[in-house]
Design a protein around this nucleic acid. Structure first.
Lengths: 290, 290
DNA sequence: CGATCGTTTGACGGTGCTCAATCACCGTGG
DNA sequence: CCACGGTGATTGAGCACCGTCAAACGATCG
């Protein structure tokens, strides 16, 4: 008995989640006009153009459902309309590596165009709705609607730029800095979506954040606590409020996280404060008088 | 004297390099047929088609030269023909964060399409040659040559997939695993380019690797040494030979780097060996009845 | 209300960042 | 030809940070 053992835990404490809920994906009979899709992707469009009324199918994805299954054939490209997704890659030992988070306007599934199989999965973090464009239609529509083509190019360009930002996120040495950068990054996205950049509602678990940042989820928790103690953040579960954006952004630039003193002089241009007891680095800096 | 103060060193030991050699970029009078560009991008083409003879301008970039300058207006998109590049983002304190390395066939500068300014720079790590396509031409040629359009789409898709791989690289907890993943990744690229996957010639410095992986460059050095001691690698400066690919790839999957025992049983499918003294994780594994 | 999962906090030990010194390798100029 | 910086790579020593293991608490849902 108990055949088929699945090892779920090499990346140690970072367990694979319950995992097996790849359901609740409704192809949804509804659809929306092309104009809405384009606006979502940041293109100003003129509704009067007849082609703008062309209708694009919508899918509904409920919390925890798998929109893109790893290993499945790549059939559709999606644009998030509402909701949040995490992109993941599952190792053979079951550890689930989070690669990115997606918000409305983001394109999902485009990576798979170059292969025929989906190499990265996507899971809804809340009840979400996505535009769904089949691979065949995509080719066709791009010729048919130059504006869509342009929008796609823009979106891809943005995603590439976003990948660079992710690399920056993860390249920080200190875990506090990583978290600070993540919060600032998320705040920026919320702001771009017309939501408050200060009062954030994180859709993802601590473990998801930890996975993305490459640190232990306990460390995420602790870093949050540190920021709260220092009066930079206010945290209640997944509700995060940024109290002192200036200090938070300063953290973003340093190697070491928040330090004891150094309130926040010189938000810009001044010597980056917040070094714990590191002074030599300033002497070592290339001083050149003006 | 010595005007213009530049703080160069917040990310501590990770100094900004000499930095100021943004020169030696020759617009090169020569050019090559479109067919070659497409083949470089992984598309099979038929030379007999007349449009395949269309000629695409070439630029020459010598070692250390800046192909894409951060902050400069985005005018061209490039495809690497020969050579290697690093993509970088320079913080205001002068610290140079490496975002990725590019080899022949890779697209550079596409991120900048969505903005008008280059937000990430690109520097040649060796004497290189790139195809150069102006933004205006790009739009035009995509309509003119559907094959180019397709190739671009493919290349972008691949770059997106590659960004996911980078995230995986950096998400490893242990620095040895990070380095192992980096080596395997680089080996794979070399292999895809028709070069030896075992004898690698790294084009980048230890510091560049360290920056990308988010660790100290001393740690990169130490990790290399560890691999040499264990007989997995043979390292002479930037010449790296992979002695035991199986062990190296195993490292790739673990949290902790090389372990003492566990030679290498069960390359695939079996329980991932190499856990230091972690047994509980097996019990915690999700046992699934069939 | 109990079960499960997510979050927080504590304690401990090891990894890796920091600082430093040394060596190898260049191209330059005496 | 060999001193001479200058840069990159390697190695060592010390200690702080964070990964690991544990336990307690809170939230959510049936």
């Amino acid at each position: 008995m108990t055949p088929d053992i699945r090892i779920a835990d090499t990346e140690s404490h970072r367990n694979a989640p319950p995992a097996t809920r790849r359901c609740a994906l409704t192809p949804m009979p509804s659809s929306r006009p092309l104009a809405e899709l384009l606006r979502l992707m940041g293109i100003d469009v003129d509704d009067s153009t007849p082609s703008m009324a062309f209708s694009v199918p919508l899918w509904q994805v409920s919390t925890g459902a798998t929109l893109l299954l790893e290993g499945a054939p790549a059939t559709h490209v999606h644009v998030v309309r509402t909701g949040t997704f995490k992109s993941i890659k599952t190792a053979e030992d079951g550890y689930e590596q989070v690669l990115s988070f997606s918000s409305p306007g983001d394109v999902l599934g485009f990576e798979a165009l170059c292969e025929d199989r989906q190499h990265t999965g996507a899971v809804a973090l809340e009840d979400s709705i996505v535009f769904a464009i089949s691979k065949r239609d995509l080719m066709l529509w791009r010729r048919l609607f130059p504006t869509l083509d342009h929008a796609l190019q823009l979106a891809l360009s943005r995603r590439l730029a976003g990948a660079g930002e992710m690399t920056e996120l993860m390249a920080a040495v200190s875990s506090e800095v990583r978290l600070a950068r993540f919060i600032v990054w998320w705040s920026g996205r919320m702001s771009a979506l017309g939501q408050s950049p200060r009062r954030l509602r994180l859709r993802m678990s601590r473990r998801d954040i930890a996975s993305l940042l490459g640190i232990a989820h306990e460390t995420v928790s602790r870093s949050f606590s540190t920021f709260v103690e220092c009066g930079v953040l206010s945290v209640a579960n997944r509700e995060v409020e940024i109290i002192d954006m200036a200090r938070l952004k300063m953290c973003t630039r340093n190697t070491r996280g928040l330090t004891d003193e150094t309130p926040y002089r010189a938000a810009v241009g001044g010597r980056p404060a917040g070094l714990r007891q590191r002074t030599r680095s300033l002497e070592a800096a290339s001083l050149t008088l003006n």
